[in-house]
Simulated assay, not measured.
Amino acid sequence: MHDLSPVPLDVAASAQQLVDGAGITLNADLVSRLLETGVDLGLDAPSRLDLKIASAALTEMRAAFRLFAPYRDVPKVTIFGSARTQPGNKLYRAAADVAKELSARGWMVVTGAGPGIMQAAAEGAGPERSIGVSIRLPFEDKPNSIFSESGNVVAMKYFFTRKLMLVKESHGFVCVPGGFGTLDEMFELLTLQQTGKADPAPIVLLDSPGGTFWAGLKRFVHEQLVPSGVVSADDFDRVMVTDSVSAAAEEITGFWRNYDSLRWVGHRLVLRLRTEPTPDEVDELNQRFGNLLTRGRIETSEPLRLEVKDDDRVHLPRLVMRYDPRQVGSLHRVIRAIDALPSSLAGDIPNIGVEEPIHD
């Protein structure tokens, strides 16, 4: 690896002075770091293309962050699918229907803002419940017409910044059959979940009534990938394959029935819940998932010291455990088990309170 030399002290001081002069107080240290990194790039003498990529990516992310900011506390679901699907197709209707049902449950729908399935989802949710993250392509020069009513759309030059925003802001995902782009997005979701680079979230592979597209993929995974040892036998268990719109919507919202959020505090994993499990239910969780811990037990707990310091969801009950980070891909099974406990099923499914995870 190349050694990254530290920013000269006078540059760091100048960056801090610029931040102070602009009146920035919130996260001022991170803003200073951005400025210092920009100077670092210049000192590295990169090519003009390298600088154009970095500058455009940061500009696009800023525009997307501003678009999503007013809806930070609204739960969102991203719907992926083909731009080539026509309005008369059953898949088009399925995408519109699941978006409509989730919108009725208080969720916003995020799409790539293009035609086909993306337009169907935006139509189903309605312009005020839709957010679009479009890509500038030679053959698609503008977002679909739904976003002309609300303006809830941002255009991206790069696929990687677009994919970041389609995944980062959402707490559930629906994939409708599509081509290379849809499969790329679906497999990236599975990879992020499997490796723990994204927090657990529900993923639904939705087909038209009687469709076999995703069933074929599931068969390929179990007949080819699992026997060859490149994926684990339960890796595909984290997704739901269905042709039912109501089942898809229930899967997305039901994942958040009791589970609220998580935080790592050192080697301890904290799961924040809406309803505290009973002692017998905690014993049941230990019996089922004790093998996923490095030591000790799953225990109910008061907020940990760092959580109190940050005022981080301290009003919620929580479970604390020494969870094996190598087993992070199995967290979805723990969460689903918590959501299925009798104490969790006592109330209605709430609208989720969106919180960004903190890793200490």
Rank of each mutant, 00 (worst) to 15 (best):
73 D>P: 00
70 P>M: 04
185 E>N: 08
145 S>A: 15
115 P>M: 14
91 L>H: 12
93 R>E: 15
174 V>A: 02
122 A>F: 10
168 K>S: 14
168 K>F: 15
90 K>C: 04
106 G>V: 06
60 E>Y: 02
174 V>T: 04
151 G>V: 01
111 T>Y: 13
85 T>Y: 08
68 F>P: 00
181 G>Y: 12
72 R>V: 09
93 R>C: 04
156 M>D: 09
170 S>C: 15
100 K>Q: 11
61 M>Q: 14
103 S>Q: 10
175 C>I: 13
108 M>W: 14
155 A>H: 14
63 A>D: 09
159 F>H: 05
178 G>F: 13
185 E>C: 01
162 R>E: 07
167 V>Y: 14
81 G>I: 06
132 G>H: 04
125 A>Y: 07
123 E>K: 08
156 M>E: 13
143 P>S: 01
90 K>E: 15
168 K>R: 15
103 S>F: 05
75 P>A: 02
164 L>T: 08
181 G>H: 10
108 M>G: 00
89 N>S: 13
124 G>D: 05
165 M>F: 15
145 S>D: 15
130 S>Y: 07
166 L>Y: 11
102 L>N: 00
136 R>N: 08
160 F>V: 04
66 R>C: 06
164 L>N: 10
130 S>I: 04
88 G>L: 07
163 K>P: 02
90 K>T: 09
151 G>L: 06
140 E>D: 00
112 G>L: 12
182 T>E: 11
177 P>D: 08
109 V>Q: 12
83 A>F: 05
135 I>A: 05
150 S>M: 01
169 E>P: 01
105 R>L: 13
66 R>E: 15
149 E>A: 09
105 R>E: 11
120 A>C: 00
155 A>F: 10
85 T>A: 06
156 M>K: 13
155 A>Y: 08
128 E>V: 01
88 G>R: 10
182 T>P: 00
77 V>K: 07
123 E>C: 04
64 A>W: 10
168 K>A: 15
171 H>Q: 15
163 K>T: 03
93 R>W: 13
93 R>Y: 10
154 V>P: 03
145 S>K: 13
65 F>E: 14
125 A>F: 11
165 M>E: 14
89 N>M: 08
121 A>D: 05
150 S>V: 03
144 N>S: 00
118 M>N: 01
131 I>Y: 05
168 K>I: 09
160 F>Q: 07
102 L>D: 05
65 F>T: 04
80 F>C: 00
70 P>I: 05
105 R>M: 06
76 K>Y: 07
176 V>F: 12
137 L>T: 00
85 T>M: 14
181 G>W: 12
170 S>V: 06
90 K>H: 14
96 A>I: 01
109 V>D: 07
99 A>N: 02
73 D>A: 15
172 G>V: 00
159 F>Y: 10
121 A>C: 06
158 Y>C: 01
107 W>T: 01
104 A>K: 14
